[in-house]
Amino acid sequence: MLIIKDLKAKVEGKEILRGINLEVKPGEVHAIMGPNGSGKSTLASVLAGKEGYEVTGGEVTYNGKNLFEFESEDRAREGIFLAFQYPIEIPGVSTINFMKTAVNEIRKYKGIEPMKAGEFMKMIKDKAALVELDSEMTKRYVNVGFSGGEKKRNEIFQMAVLDPKLGILDETDSGLDIDALKIVANGVNKLKRKDNAFVVITHYQRLLDYIVPDFVHVLYNGKIVKSGDKSLAYQLEEEGYDWIKEESAVN
């Protein structure tokens, strides 16, 4: 589904990603861990096509196509969803209106008629229930006045509505208490299928108690320096990142 080969990228002239290799197949959950400043969020932003990130080397193929030939919105329409680390507040736009516009723009891209109002409302209700979001929240302006947990839950709700093939969660667990964390993780688990995949970016192991990854990768200094199964996450929890830093200094 997603193949990243030797990906290098700069932000404001500074090289942050220094050769990333990663393959994600349908049905898999990958966790990307690493200390602060290792390049985790940069990777997410580059995949979503945020401006200001310059790809200086390597390639990314998504379902056999060069990802970088797609604009941000087309990546979303092709099934990539980024759950933001810091979701944006949009005064004046209700979540429901936001999602209606998004759903219909994606349908237009695929050559499908806009969704009928009744069908859309039913879907909103179902998806809100799936991620345990009070559907009244969807009538409010996007993220305006939301707590940190509510914002993250709203991200998962949007992910449920847009039903992506590849979901990228950028530190969705940061700033969440344990209850909010469980709800977010539950949402992801319910959305998990054989034909979709998730990349979960996180600093801490605790999210991985609830979203069980098939693979864990450690990103350090712009490179994946170690990969393993979920036991690697426990090791990081126990021992911290220092041994990774030391190992990578030796190599």
Binding site: K50, I88, I90, T101, A102, E105, L162
Partner: peptide, 14 residues
């Protein structure tokens, strides 16, 4: 521009 990117990341054209 952050608001525009957020919307684009959900499949909405610029």
């Amino acid at each position: 521009p952050d608001e525009v990117f957020y919307l684009r990341a959900r499949g909405i054209s610029e």
